[in-house]
Design a protein around this nucleic acid. Structure first.
Length: 589
RNA sequence: GGGCGUGUAGCACAGCUGGAUAAUGCGUCGGCCUCCUAAGCCGAAGAUCGCGGGUUCGAAUCCUGCCACGCCCGCCA
């Protein structure tokens, strides 16, 4: 709780320096208490024992005895060598009601902090429908975009379009060379495509891609060689910046990309800018970059003319050669990525990338190369893959859960719950609530766990609507909205905070959580850990439920001004916080 | 073989810049709707924090060895 810390630190400083303990020695030790029953802030006094030649308990007793009576504090206690500070709830209430807790908005750039962030996420190959395996990147990335905005940073969400190379080449070749009958025959043993997505281009075109992949693997040797030659020449042309070929690639993948973006949009995910990989080949920056790399001290040339950097000299372990140019003179994906990052540094002063754990080595190579070029490396958030209980997902093999299907199912299940719980709602209202609840549950299920944790997708967990899920937070918010609507029509007493003794536990806990709200957001954004904020929102909603239990706002058709003011503030924090998580804060459910 | 990551109640997961009784949800057991939406609230049971060693006043957290799982080690993307 930063606001409390700022209030007590000067007093601690003067007492401890008098005793002979410098600020460096204690500042980092003062931290939030583990348990609310202990207080709000705790200073363990054990480290001072050897310096002061006194028992920890004696030291904490002494500090507690010397500590002045502050309005902000309810108590300073000394227990087992720990010095515990408990905030005065009246002071917390005052902080909450005097705009010291910032609400903010996750939906637009406010420029409040003056910081700009270019956040690249998703950047999935446009070769097929968006599936759950790819979702962690997009959901994590979009949530970070939103949290940065909520924090007050100017954010640009960027999608790097992989519009060249083999994946797109295969798709383009297949669309040019295979008929619908060819495709149906090649895929006859696969599950047929869902009727539901017959008009969605990503679901249609991925079949050409899959059929081509089967041919490349199972056709007779002569046909296989012919196909590889044709695809190879397309890829080769694209990598040398052949504009006609790149345009044919674009024609092949654009409808697929549009289908993917439509899916993402349903999850509330959108991008400010799209940058095509080929851009840096066509405009010559990649060629120039390769010349620059040739001139570096750690650069070397292989027998066939390929260029590489020996990153072992810069501390890379394992395989130390980083190839940036093929023997035929063309660039590699990673080379273009370096060029892309050089460009990005011209666009923003903070770069954040969201990448799968399989890109760790690659990202390290790109980072070291950027440093070698006198540039900074970007911040990278790595995440582990989402697997199915039966194994890894793969677009090529077709064992995936499509996000479109998951969202339909989520909507259907949410809809069933709403109909059962609220039989009086009409169809439109049910649909609107079901859409918000269903997509929120899917997002939250992924956001709430830390990214490096391996994740197995399970339907029943993605579609949980109880405590610990998004609908739990949404529900607390609707309660606050419901109170707000009722209270506005009734006479309201002046805002008169009760004395600390008269404040019930549920109220005090809510005040604490609200005072911590900005701290958690700040840390969440600084460390790129969306799950910290997600879990805090769960706690905030839980605390609101406790407040709801203990503090009736409307009593006998009169509104308690103080309780109402707290409720309204909590409502605002829940609303903006939900938006920060990409959840639609509906008012009724 | 080398590098990186993960291992915490039946299940899932937080805590990992060392601090008190290891937090939360699901599941299990028990209680609460004449009162602001019960998608809620209250209570109970349930944990050798993968295993061994070390550092420390103090280790889930730091160091080290081992075990299990995941990802990577292409002139692919």
């Amino acid at each position: 709780m930063k606001i409390l810390q700022a209030t007590i630190s000067p007093h601690l400083e003067s007492i401890l320096s008098e005793m002979g303990v410098g600020k460096d020695a204690w500042e980092s030790l003062l931290q939030p208490s583990r348990e609310a029953s202990q207080g709000d802030l705790t200073l363990p006094c054990f480290p001072f024992a050897s310096v002061l030649r006194k028992a920890p308990q004696a030291i904490s007793d002494e500090i507690a005895g010397l500590f002045p009576q502050l309005e902000a504090l309810a108590s300073v206690s000394s227990v087992n060598g720990y010095l515990n500070f408990t905030a005065n709830p009246e002071w917390l209430a005052d902080a909450v009601l005097s705009d010291q807790v910032h609400i903010g908005s996750a939906l637009e750039n406010s420029g409040r902090t003056g910081e700009t962030v270019l956040l690249e996420h998703t950047s999935a190959n446009p070769n097929g429908p968006f599936h759950v395996g790819r979702a962690r990147n997009a959901i994590l990335g979009d949530t970070l975009v939103r949290l940065h905005r909520l924090h007050g940073d100017d954010v640009r969400a960027e999608y790097y379009v992989d519009d060249m190379g083999k994946q797109v080449g295969v798709l383009a070749w297949a669309l040019d060379n295979l008929s619908e009958e060819d495709v149906n025959e090649l895929l006859s043993e696969r599950e047929p495509p869902s009727e539901r997505w017959l008009t969605k281009a990503d679901h249609q075109r991925v079949r050409w891609y899959q059929a081509a992949q089967i041919l490349r693997k199972d056709a007779d040797e002569e046909r296989k060689a012919q196909i590889e030659k044709e695809i190879g020449s397309l890829v080769h042309a694209s990598e040398h910046g052949d504009v006609a070929v790149l345009e044919s690639f674009e024609a092949a993948y654009t409808p697929v990309l549009e289908g993917m973006l439509a899916t993402l949009s349903r999850l509330g995910i959108s991008y400010d800018t799209f940058t095509k990989e080929s851009r840096f080949v066509v405009d010559g920056t990649v060629a120039k970059l390769m010349e620059t790399l040739d001139g570096l001290q750690i650069s070397d040339t292989a027998d066939n003319g390929a260029g590489f950097l020996d990153l072992g000299q810069r501390g890379l372990k394992g395989k130390t050669e980083f190839f940036y140019r093929r023997g035929d003179g063309s660039s590699l994906y990673a080379t273009r990525d370096v060029a892309y990052h050089m460009w990005k540094w011209g666009e923003s002063n903070r770069l954040v990338n969201v990448l799968g754990e399989d890109h760790k080595l690659q990202a390290k190579q790109v980072g070291l190369t950027l440093e070698e070029l006198g540039q900074k490396r970007p911040e990278v958030l790595f995440y582990s893959f989402i697997k199915l209980p039966e194994g890894k997902m793969s677009t090529r093999q077709g064992n995936v859960v499509f996000m479109d299907d998951l969202l339909e199912e989520a909507h259907a299940q949410a809809s069933a719950v709403v109909r059962e719980l609220r039989p009086e709602y009409d169809d439109d209202k049910v649909a609107q609530i079901a859409e918000a609840v269903g997509t929120a549950a899917v997002r939250f299920n992924i956001i709430k766990v830390s990214p490096e944790k391996g994740f197995t997708f399970r339907w029943e967990e993605a579609l949980a609507f109880e405590a610990g899920s998004a609908p739990f937070i949404m529900y607390a918010h609707t309660r606050a909205c419901s109170i707000s609507k009722r209270a506005h029509a009734l006479p309201t007493s002046p805002i008169q905070p009760p004395s600390a003794d008269a404040m019930p536990e549920g109220l005090v806990e809510l005040l604490r959580l609200m005072c911590k709200h900005n701290d958690v957001l700040e840390r969440s954004v600084r460390e790129q850990k969306a799950h910290l904020f997600a879990l805090h929102m769960l706690e905030l909603a839980n605390a609101y439920n406790g407040f709801y239990r203990d503090c009736p706002v409307v009593k006998e058709n009169e509104v308690d001004g103080f309780a109402f003011a707290i409720s309204q503030m909590a409502r605002e924090l829940m609303r903006s916080g939900l938006e920060g998580l990409g959840i639609t804060p509906i008012e009724e459910m």
